[in-house]
Simulated scan of single mutants.
Amino acid sequence: MDARQRLVVGISGASGAVYGIRSLELARAAGIETHLVVSRAALLTLHQELGLQKDDLETKADIVHPVQDIGASIASGSFRTMGMLIAPCSVRTMSEIASGVTSSLMSRAADVVLKERRRLVLMVRETPLHLGHLRTMTALTEMGAAIMPPVPAFYAHPGSLDEMVTHSSARALDLFGIDTDAIQRWGGLKDALTENAP
């Protein structure tokens, strides 16, 4: 498998497991091989928010790695990938990655992506943010990660929550150069008001 067609996807315990699921679906539709790692807390969130079980989630990925398997392929830099998306990313997971002290395959795989200078995208799900959160995000950005909270794009006039989730997930995949054709892209203002703008 070409490393340019292989993506690691992590789902942590923050609210918004649906972002990880939709990202897996979109990546598969785009012909990308996905390697999934899910935290224990994420399984609780998955059931609470979506009524799904572990087996329901695992059918969405090509390869599933147990979160405690630190000997998995994605724990090594010699296993080439296009990078890793954690969707959603909890503050705990974000902080563990920033510290470099990895205690699970989730944070180890993210650490590998950073050390190999590959793309790491964190869909951080927390609000409001205190200074410690912001400093951690700054540190990760300086290390090469992209912090991408799933913020709705109202210019696309989403008609449902599902459309908002799809848009955010597709935009996250954009950061890896994965074109899903699943979003309405901004084409500039096309309103009569712009004609009269100074």
Rank of each mutant, 00 (worst) to 15 (best):
D2E: 13
A3K: 15
R4H: 13
R4V: 10
G13Y: 04
A14H: 04
S15Y: 08
S15L: 06
S15P: 06
A17R: 01
A17M: 07
V18L: 11
G20H: 00
L26N: 01
R28D: 12
A29E: 15
G31L: 08
I32W: 02
T34F: 02
V37E: 07
V37T: 15
V37M: 06
R40E: 13
R40M: 09
R40W: 05
A42T: 05
L43Y: 06
L43P: 06
T45L: 02
L46Q: 04
H47V: 06
E49V: 09
E49K: 05
E49Q: 09
G51P: 07
K54F: 06
D55Q: 15
D55K: 14
E58F: 12
T59A: 07
K60V: 07
A61T: 11
D62L: 03
V67L: 14
Q68D: 15
G71E: 14
S73R: 10
I74S: 04
I74M: 09
A75Y: 09
A75P: 09
F79M: 10
F79R: 07
R80I: 03
M82V: 01
M82N: 02
G83S: 05
G83L: 00
I86F: 07
S90C: 10
S90M: 09
S90P: 09
V91Q: 05
R92S: 04
T93D: 02
I97R: 00
A98V: 06
A98Q: 00
A98H: 05
A98P: 02
S99R: 00
S99Q: 04
G100K: 10
V101P: 00
T102Q: 09
T102F: 03
S103Y: 01
S103K: 13
S104R: 07
L105P: 03
M106R: 11
R108D: 11
A109L: 12
D111M: 04
D111I: 09
L114T: 10
K115R: 15
E116G: 05
R118D: 13
R118T: 08
L120I: 01
V124H: 00
E126I: 03
E126T: 04
T127N: 15
T127Y: 11
L129G: 12
L131G: 11
G132R: 12
H133N: 11
L134D: 14
T136S: 12
M137Q: 13
M137H: 10
T138K: 12
T138A: 10
A139W: 08
L140E: 04
T141S: 15
E142C: 06
G144K: 10
A146P: 00
P149Y: 08
P149S: 08
V151W: 03
Y155V: 04
Y155S: 04
H157L: 12
G159I: 07
S160H: 08
E163P: 05
V165L: 01
S168L: 03
S168R: 00
A170Q: 01
R171F: 00
L175Q: 09
L175I: 04
F176A: 01
F176Y: 05
I178M: 11
T180K: 00
D181F: 05
A182Y: 01
A182S: 13
A182T: 03
I183K: 09
I183M: 06
K190S: 14
N196P: 01
A197G: 06
